[in-house]
Simulated assay, not measured.
Amino acid sequence: MLKSVLLSVSVLALIACGAQSSADAAPAPEQSKAAAPVEKNITIKDLGNDFYMLLGPGGNIGVSVGEDGVYVIDDKFARFGEEIIARIGEITDQPIKYVLNTHHHGDHTGANAVMKTTGATVMAHDNIRVRMSEPYKSSRSETGMSQPTDPSLWPTLTFSDTTTLHFNGHTVKQIHVPSSHTDGDSIVHFVEANIVHMGDNFFLGMFPFVDVDSGGNLNGMIAAQEKVLSMINADTQVIPGHGPLAGRAELESSIATLKTIRDRVQKHMTDGKTLDEIIAAKPLADMSDMNGFIKEDGMVTAAYRSLQN
C-alpha cells in the first residue's frame, strides 16, 4: 500500500469571561504539558490509491505512504514543519523515511531541519546542496548576493542525474531536469501509480518563476515540461509546484503558452530592442490574467535573460 500526499500550506484563543479563583485559573498538570494545537493552513487532497496532495502556502507537497514508511516531496516554509508532520500523522502512523527537495527555494526546503528530527533522510540533486551552502549572485537579493542557509537545512543525500527508489512496492524515479526552473531541479515519477510531481517546473494558471540567477532558463523549463509530456498519458495526475492538481491537457496548454512568451520576446530581440523597450511594448498584455507572484514585466525579463544565454 502506498500513500502519496501532496502538501501545499490560527492559534485558537480561549477567552474566559468573569472572575476565576486562583485554583480555577491554574491549569492541571496534564494541561500545562499539553502541546499547543497545530494550526490548519494545509489541506489534504486524496488522489486515490493511497496518494495525497497537500495544498496551502508555499509549494505543493507530495507524500507517499506504505509499509516501508513515508516519502515526502518538498516541505514548504520552516513555519509549516510541525503542521506538515501533523497532517501526515492524520494519514498514517508510519515514520517519515525520505524527503525529496525538487529544488533549493525556501518554500520547498524550509522545513528540512524539522523533517530531519523525525529521522528522515533529505535527498536532492547535487546542485541544491551547492546553492544552499554557497553564496551566489542574485538580483532578487537586496545585497545582490544569495547567502548560504543554515546547514541543518541542507540535503544529506544527493545525486547527479537520475536515481530510482524502490519503496513500498513502487518504482519512484527522481529525474534531474537541467537548467529549467533552476540548475538543480528534479521531477518525481511514480511509475505504477501514474503520478508526476513537477516541482516549480510547472506553475498552473500563472506566470512561472524562471530563476535565471540560479541557472534557470525558459527554454529549459519548456524542455522539462516536454519531457514529462512524453512520459505521461491522459490519465496521469500531474502535481505542479504551485496551483491545483493538473493533467496532460493542462501541461500541453502550459507548453504552448511558454513557447508563445518565448517567441514574442525573441521577435523583439531580433528587431534589436532593449529589455526596457520590450517591457514598454507590453508583449504579454493579453496574458494579464496570469499575473501572480511573477508579473508580466518579470516574465518578459526572465524570457529576455534566458534568450541571452
Rank of each mutant, 00 (worst) to 15 (best):
D200I: 02
I91Q: 14
N112A: 09
M290C: 01
E83P: 07
G184N: 06
V9D: 13
R140V: 12
R264Q: 07
S186M: 12
D24K: 10
G241E: 03
D126R: 02
V191C: 06
M53E: 10
I61A: 15
E134I: 03
S230Q: 10
S230P: 10
V212K: 02
V177D: 00
G119F: 00
T162R: 14
D161T: 14
W154I: 12
S21P: 05
V265D: 11
A193M: 11
S21T: 15
G110Y: 13
K33H: 06
K76V: 15
E296Y: 06
M299K: 09
M1D: 10
D297Q: 13
S186W: 03
I195E: 06
I195K: 00
D183I: 05
C17M: 09
T182R: 02
A124Q: 06
L7K: 07
H197E: 02
N112P: 08
M269F: 09
A25W: 03
Q31G: 00
G292E: 11
L245Y: 00
M145A: 07
T260E: 15
K137Q: 11
F80N: 14
E39V: 13
F167L: 12
Q266G: 02
D211R: 00
M145C: 04
M269R: 06
T162W: 02
K259P: 08
S139T: 07
I88V: 15
L204H: 01
F207V: 01
I187Q: 07
V63D: 10
I85Q: 01
G144N: 14
G18D: 12
S141I: 05
D200V: 01
T182W: 08
T121W: 00
S133R: 02
I96R: 03
E142W: 08
T163D: 10
T274N: 01
T118C: 01
V130Y: 04
E277V: 04
E192G: 03
M231C: 11
M1G: 09
F202Y: 11
A249M: 08
I294H: 07
I42L: 15
G247P: 02
G110A: 14
T117S: 07
M198A: 10
E277K: 00
A246M: 05
K137L: 12
M53F: 07
G69D: 12
T260P: 04
E83Y: 09
L7M: 14
P27H: 03
V177H: 04
R248N: 05
L55M: 08
L14C: 05
A34W: 04
L204N: 01
P151R: 09
Y52K: 12
P37K: 09
A234K: 15
Y71W: 07
I73M: 01
D93E: 12
G216F: 13
H242W: 08
A224I: 10
A78C: 12
E296L: 11
S4H: 02
H104I: 10
L251I: 08
G106E: 15
S230G: 14
I239W: 00
D213A: 09
H170M: 06
A86D: 14
I15K: 06
P240S: 02
L245W: 02
E277W: 04
I96H: 02
Q225L: 08
Q20I: 08
A35F: 09
A249F: 05
S21R: 07
A280W: 00
I278N: 04
G66Q: 03
D68S: 11
H197W: 00
A256Q: 15
I278P: 10
Q266P: 03
T162D: 13
T158Q: 04
D75A: 13
A78H: 15
H105V: 13
C17R: 11
L229G: 02
I96E: 04
